[in-house]
Each structure stands twice: as structure tokens, then as C-alpha cells.
Simulated scan of single mutants.
Amino acid sequence: MAIETTRFDIQDHIGSPESQAAYLEAALEDGDPGLIAAAIGDIARARGATQFAKESGLSRETIYKVFRPGGNPTIGTVAKAARVLGLRLTLAPIPDSH
């Protein structure tokens, strides 16, 4: 008996601001910079890359280039993207990290 699979597309699951925030929070908790960049890119595309580019002041090419797995955005680029998402960058201590 063959296993039937369906194609997974994150865009089908991050349509609301709440789901986008939860998705980004999960990526941030993981701590992998490539995963964080890819999550921001997924959210940018879910919101519409053209509109996201306009609001962030970043070009569409930049969004597609740096916010993907293996992308390497600068902290300034991440800050601009966060602002568009209604977020700000903060640092917090890791509980019980000695």
C-alpha cells in the first residue's frame, strides 16, 4: 500500500498576523540564523513581497536574496523587516544559562 502525501506550503498556514508572529517566534526560539531569515522571507511573501518591499524600504531582490534558507541579512535589514511586521528587536536572557 503506497503512502499518499500532499505538498506542504507554509504560505497556507501563515495568513494572519497572529500565525506569522507564532511562526517567527518559533524560528527565533530555534536560534538558527538561516531559519530566522527564511521565516521572515516566508512572512514577507505571505504579505506580498512588493508591498513588504515598499513598506520596509528594501528591494524585492533583497527580500528574495537574504530572507531565504542560507541568506545572510544584516541586523539593519532584519530590523527594517521587523518594523514592517510591527515588531522590534530585543534581547532577553536565556533562562538558566550559566
Rank of each mutant, 00 (worst) to 15 (best):
A44G: 12
A53Q: 05
S56K: 07
S56H: 07
D32T: 11
A46I: 11
I36A: 08
G57W: 01
S56I: 09
D32C: 04
R47I: 09
L24V: 08
G48H: 12
S59P: 03
A53I: 05
A26S: 14
E55G: 00
Q51R: 15
D30P: 04
A49R: 14
E25S: 14
G48Q: 12
G31Y: 09
Q51Y: 05
Q51E: 15
L24D: 10
L35K: 14
E25F: 11
A53K: 05
F52N: 04
L58I: 03
D42T: 06
D42R: 11
A49S: 13
G41K: 08
E55F: 01
Y23M: 09
G34C: 01
A39L: 01
I40T: 03
D32F: 01
R60W: 04
E29H: 12
R47N: 15
D32G: 01
G31W: 07
R60K: 15
P33V: 07
A26H: 11
A39G: 03
G31H: 09
A39K: 02
G41V: 10
A27V: 13
R60E: 13
G41T: 11
G34F: 02
E25Q: 15
S59L: 06
S59M: 06
D30F: 06
L58V: 04
E25R: 15
G41I: 08
E29A: 14
A37N: 09
R60L: 13
R45K: 15
F52R: 04
I40V: 14
E25T: 14
I40E: 00
R45P: 00
R60A: 09
R45W: 09
L35F: 00
R60H: 03
E25I: 09
A53W: 02
E29S: 12
D42I: 08
G57V: 03
R47M: 15
A39Q: 05
A27K: 13
G41E: 08
S56M: 10
S56E: 09
R60T: 12
G48W: 11
D30V: 12
A49Y: 04
L24S: 08
K54E: 13
D30K: 15
I36T: 13
E55P: 00
R60C: 01
G31N: 07
I36N: 06
A46T: 10
Y23I: 06
G41R: 06
A46G: 07
R45S: 14
G34R: 01
L24G: 08
G48D: 12
I36K: 07
R60Y: 03
E55A: 13
